[in-house]
Amino acid sequence: MDLWKPQPVGRLPRFRQSLSRKSCVLDQLLQHCLNALVLGGTYALLGIGLTLIFGIMRVVNFTHGELYSFGAYMMFMFVMLLHLDFFLSLVLAMLLGIALGAAIEFLLLRKLRGADIDTTMLVMIGAWIAMQNLEQLVWSGVAKSIKTPFPSSPLVMGALSVSWNRLFVLAVALGLILCTYALVNRTRLGRAMRATFQDPDTAALMGVDIGTIYMSTFALGSGLAAAAGALLGPIFVVTPTMGDLASLKAFAIVILGGLGNIVGATIGGFILAFIEELGAGYISSGYRDAMGFLLIIAILLVRPTGLFSRKERIG
């Protein structure tokens, strides 16, 4: 066995060992909270998209995670293969997500309106399997990385630090959440969506075109999922199965926040992120992803309508 002759290292990085142990513990806690805040933004984005679809259309949408990975792959294609501008790519990825969502609604769900919840669920599972494997066929199973225009040095605040990319993601996510909230609460389309959520039959009688509402809802939810994927893709890596956990976490957030409840899903997203991050930091990093599912089971057993929902549950 041979090995190159080692050379002594000049200067070792210096460590702040003068700090007291207490402030170290506090720093660690604050760092975990900061990480959770950034993560929570994208969780909320995923949750809002799904809660609209689940709440208004009564569709358990298994393709939600595929839209998320679709957004990430579109980002990869635009930025790394076509060398488009990073921010333009983000907008394009979201628009394509909206288009794909509308197409899924038109091709698969339109004819099933009024079918029972199990039937549409099976169709969505079929679509999920086909889409995921199509993705794997096109992009192969090898993880893809996306370059970002952000400085690689993080923003440093005392002992805390956060990358500019993550701050950008948080800002965009919060912006999109506010836009969605405004859309649902301040526009005609939003009013029609809320009416459909409360009672589709009455809404139809009052002249609401249910078909348009369903398509808009599914497209909007899909666009938000694609945006979440496009935002997180550059931070992590892009793989064909990245959407699976995203789907399940989105379900957790929806249940946490209550059906069709945008504010609930937003808070739910942040709660899940905090529980995961603190659980991973102080209990066990291996059980990070289990936290959300344990939460679902616990909440449904204690309060089957979700934490923030006053509405009657469906099903």
């Binding site: 060992q17 990480n35 890596v237 199965t241 991973a280 930091g281 990093s285």
Partner: peptide
């Protein structure tokens, strides 16, 4: 001595623990 699942992508919690443990 931290472990991670082979397909984990967010390792911030492990890294925060390692940072707190100190060392070179």
């Amino acid at each position: 001595q931290e472990t991670m699942e082979p397909d984990a992508t967010d390792l911030s919690a492990q890294l925060a623990k390692i940072k707190a443990a100190g060392g070179d």
